[in-house]
Design a protein around this nucleic acid. Structure first.
Ligand SMILES: [Mn+2]
Ligand SMILES: [Mn+2]
Ligand SMILES: [Zn+2]
Ligand SMILES: [Zn+2]
Lengths: 124, 124
DNA sequence: TGCTATTTGCAATTTAATTGCATTAAATGA
DNA sequence: TCATTTAATGCAATTAAATTGCAAATAGCA
């Protein structure tokens, strides 16, 4: 547990929405944490491997994002098309649907990915 | 409308699931269509711009996929974690949910993206 | 402190996608 | 039909996120 890894973790813990590697990198620099971008990538990879962080890919974006696993159950996100603001959706409306899809497709359903986009209050 | 563009279109029309640029390229080569990969990309870009094809990004994959717009209303996909088989889901369960999410988040909801993954009949 | 296993920084690499540019093919219409 | 304009193509180079090799630095521990 190096000081750079602690800085990465601390930033993820204190942010309510998922962060991209380059966002993390920029904020750590602003906090005067000396860290290389590739180290951010490697820390995120390691933290994901041990189940501490969760990797998220939003449909409208090119980079991955990461958020803490702890205390954040399975949920989905909504993203503003204008300013990029990302917010958690606390509900998951799809649990009931799985059986229906299994019937229809004969697949055995594992996961799902769901996200919304639109316009946040400020951008409407 | 060049012969290469017609070949790309024909392949998309005759395939029931979305194709990636490299899949298209490989199949066109097998059909002895002389075409460069970058031309496949440019044709897909152009066809998307005029609303003929739809671009899809599946959460588990690194490449985009493309399917015809015509005759295929808004729908979602399921992908096999084992063999990669992709199938259409004909229903969209989320129309009713939009109002609820708008209430909760104060966002104005535009689009959504939804996909399932699991195991297809052959891979179970 | 000294030793070992990890982590880090820097440079190079990978892969999907995009762009510049000269060449080729399509399309228009006289 | 043929000349002229317009758009598409092939090849090489580039971009951007992510990954990897490797030597140097650091953490954890005796
Ligand atoms: Mn979240
Ligand atoms: Mn489809
Ligand atoms: Zn916004
Ligand atoms: Zn399968």
């Amino acid at each position: 547990m190096t000081r750079t890894r602690q800085a990465v973790l601390g930033l993820l813990e204190s942010t309510k929405y998922p962060l991209s590697p380059s966002e993390l990198y920029a904020r750590l620099k602003k906090q005067n944490v000396a860290i290389d971008l590739v180290t951010v990538y490697r820390n995120l990879h390691a933290l994901k491997a041990i189940g501490v962080v969760r990797q998220i890919k939003l449909h409208q974006e090119e980079q991955f994002r990461y958020e803490m696993e702890e205390g954040r159950e399975h949920h989905h996100h909504i993203r503003c098309k204008s300013c990029g603001k990302i917010e958690d959706l606390l509900l998951c409306p799809l649990k009931k649907l799985t059986a229906l899809i299994e019937q229809e497709t004969r697949f055995l359903v594992g996961d799902h990915s769901l996200e919304f986009s639109g316009w946040c209050p400020k951008c409407q």
